[in-house]
Nucleic acid binder design. Structure first.
Ligand SMILES: [Mn+2]
Ligand SMILES: [Mn+2]
Length: 274
DNA sequence: GATATAG
DNA sequence: CTATATCAACGCAGT
DNA sequence: ACTGCG
């Protein structure tokens, strides 16, 4: 027994290696299950991945093993996997995978890439993000209702500026508030704006919100994290599976779902997302 | 997970 | 042949 | 330069 199977994705036939390998021991979720998840969400997920440098968080030994964070595309990846060479701030370049099609998404799953993260800019203009991400994280001692409250405050402020907002559970502990951008501003400009939004709200609600990056200083407040808004930084992709018990999935939600007291960061999982 | 090298 | 070793990121803020 | 953080 060679311990492989084949799967057809569009016109491509991929070989899956060790499909029965258990990646989530508490849940019995296998590599084949991960592959099926990404095949199933590919239509919804690909618009958020296409043209963007991608960072892989791989778990070749399952989620209880050491995660392998990988930016450069490994040499053994096939030629049909798209890639983009981008500037490294510290000199040189990095050649990332660019996931433009379902076959690549499934190939990444076979490589035990549990959680793809992607840049907020596209490879053709890497210094000009088309998304702003405000990352809302509860601290020890604050709960998801505080995160829901914080998201409302962020959205109200952005409403007042005439900016649209999108929301996503991250599958870990918090929420992302996303503002689509027209790529006129560079990362410095976007980050400065995000910093003013976060700073104003933290000043207005000093007991409930903070911009302190040091965990010890956050106390029981919700952390308004703007740090994703920089060159070569990434945010977890919508529909990505998190390497946590239950295999929670980062899931876009509607604004009105913020009022649901049952909402939490891990509300949707590989088993429930459909 | 894939590959190179040692036993 | 199997076993073992080795490799696989980066940027920012604060001190 | 080094650490904490994501
Ligand atoms: Mn291994
Ligand atoms: Mn977060």
């Amino acid at each position: 027994m060679s311990d492989t199977s084949e799967i057809r994705i569009g016109r491509r036939t991929l070989t899956l290696h060790r499909p029965d390998k258990v990646l989530f021991p508490d849940d019995g979720i296998t590599k084949a299950d991960l592959v099926e998840h990404y095949r199933s969400v590919s239509r919804r997920m690909l618009p958020q991945l296409r043209e963007r440098p991608l960072m892989m968080v791989r778990h070749p030994d399952g989620i209880d093993g050491e995660p392998l964070v990988q930016k450069n595309i490994p040499g053994h990846f096939p030629d049909w996997v798209h890639r983009a060479e981008v500037r490294r701030e510290s000199g040189g370049t990095v050649t990332h995978v660019v996931c433009d099609d379902a076959a690549t998404l499934v190939y990444l799953a076979d490589q035990a890439c549990v959680t793809p993260h992607r840049w907020l800019s596209r490879a053709d203009r890497p210094d000009h993000p088309d998304r702003l991400v405000l990352d809302l994280d509860p601290s020890d001692g604050s709960g998801f209702e505080d995160v829901r409250w914080a998201a409302h405050r962020v959205c109200e402020l952005l409403d007042g500026l005439g900016l649209p907002t999108l929301l996503m559970t991250t599958g870990s502990s918090g929420l992302h508030v996303v503002v689509p951008l027209d790529r006129q501003a560079d990362f410095g400009t976007v980050r400065a704006f995000a910093g003013r939004v976060a700073g104003l709200l933290a000043e207005r609600h000093p007991g409930r919100l903070t911009t302190e990056q040091r965990k010890a200083e956050r106390k029981d407040r919700v952390y308004l994290d703007i740090q994703r808004n920089a060159y070569a930084q990434t945010a977890v992709a919508p529909y990505a599976v998190r390497a946590l018990p239950g295999a929670p999935v980062a899931t876009p939600i509607a604004r009105r779902e913020l009022d649901d007291p049952e909402l939490h960061a891990r509300r949707w999982t590989l088993a429930t997302i459909g």
